[in-house]
Amino acid sequence: MTLDPENSVNVIEFKNPSSFVSPSGSKYALYTRAFDLADESEYPITISYSGAQVAPEDITVKLGIDTAALSQYNAEQHKKYDLIDEKLYTLVTSVVIPKGERTAVAKLKFKSSAFDFSKKYVLPIQIQSASAGVVSGNFGTILLNVNAKNKYDGVYTVTGKMSDASNAAFAGLYSVGKKVEYTLETISATECVVTDHINWGGAAYVPIWTGTGVSGYGSFSPVVEFDPATGKIISVKNFYGQPASNTRSAQLNPAGINIYDATAKTIKISYWMLQPSVVTTPPHIRTTWEEEWKFQKPR
């Protein structure tokens, strides 16, 4: 195959607006972005005249909402993303790529403070037409998955201690000098689930050291609930069920230190993993954690 970039046909398309979520098996790409709670959160979307040439004239690009694309993605990926209510966003539906330029930015704003935390919002945006050029078949429509972040959301470095009553070799990664980071992801105004992006690619798992390598407890990750008035941690439950199918559940250690320090942006937490199928004697505590989570950066 011989490529001739200088004579290639330019296409009008969306540039990647945020971190990419693989659309394997889907026609359309899905992008995810989380916003702080605000009356108005900006999300600039760039439309590109992609190829060897710059725009030969002012190109007017019309944008619209493609609900069929979202339905197709849900069917292909077996997902249940929700079409975001039109009251929660504003989108400029016409932009101009100036003559001699390659891009234009569409102003998109979300009312993230009004988001329903139980919803998985997606805004499917389509390039409906362009006054010149060819609209891309691959990136003429994009799906924007947007969600809100509570004040506890973010990336934290973790230190502390861990003990497993059924296997003394199991320990926290920090006990063998390995870096531990938890990402707290918002699931309600007062709750976050612990995810691990270093070892598990963002999945909801707590990394552990088995004595020979990195692992994690299947079907287990804590969901932490805070009292916004006092900063106290009021409950911990298992993201995969309370209990999960393997009998694992989470519980706060009431005798431990369980608090969020808003000034230092530090969390001190003491909790247990209960597993009656392994530890048959009540209260069925298999694993204990006493940790300090220090905020490093936003998610």
Rank of each mutant, 00 (worst) to 15 (best):
G51S: 12
I234N: 11
D261E: 08
L88H: 10
V180T: 10
G218Q: 09
W200N: 14
V224C: 03
E40S: 15
V92K: 14
K27S: 14
P98N: 08
P124H: 06
K99D: 06
Q126I: 00
T281V: 15
S8C: 04
V92I: 08
L70Q: 01
A69V: 08
G137W: 05
Q72T: 09
A168V: 00
I45G: 03
N16S: 12
W272A: 04
P228I: 05
S219V: 01
I234F: 07
V9R: 13
A132G: 09
K87Q: 14
A52P: 11
E191A: 14
D66P: 02
K119L: 02
E101N: 12
I233F: 09
V279F: 02
A130T: 07
I47H: 05
E76M: 08
A189G: 06
R102M: 08
P282E: 13
N253Y: 03
L3M: 06
N147W: 02
G218F: 07
A168R: 00
P44G: 14
S24T: 14
A29I: 02
Q296D: 00
G241M: 04
K99I: 06
G100S: 09
G172S: 13
S22A: 14
I187T: 11
V155T: 12
L83F: 00
S112F: 01
G218H: 11
L123A: 03
W293F: 10
A148P: 00
K265A: 07
C192V: 15
M162P: 00
I285T: 07
K178I: 02
K99T: 12
P23H: 12
L274H: 03
A34N: 12
N253H: 09
G241E: 01
I47M: 04
V158A: 05
A55R: 07
S129L: 08
V176E: 00
T183L: 03
T186R: 04
Y271S: 06
D36M: 11
T263Q: 07
L3Q: 10
F110I: 01
I84S: 01
H78S: 13
E101T: 09
P44K: 13
Q53C: 07
D261V: 04
A171S: 15
D82V: 02
E292N: 09
K87L: 11
K109F: 10
G213D: 11
L83Q: 01
N258V: 09
K161S: 13
S166N: 12
S221M: 07
S22L: 08
D58F: 10
D4H: 07
N150A: 08
P98H: 10
D85P: 00
S19M: 11
I198V: 12
D261H: 06
T186Y: 04
P298V: 11
K297T: 15
V158C: 06
S163W: 01
P17C: 07
E6P: 00
D82A: 08
G137Q: 14
Y89H: 04
K232S: 15
E86I: 07
S175H: 00
G51M: 10
K109R: 12
T103I: 11
N138T: 12
E225H: 05
S163V: 09
Y28E: 07
T195D: 04
K179T: 13
L63Q: 02
Q275H: 04
S175Q: 07
N147F: 06
S163T: 13
Y205S: 10
V223E: 03
E292Y: 03
S48Q: 13
E6H: 05
N258G: 11
G218R: 10
V11I: 15
A264K: 14
K149Q: 15
T2L: 08
Q53H: 14
A34Q: 12
E76G: 04
D153S: 14
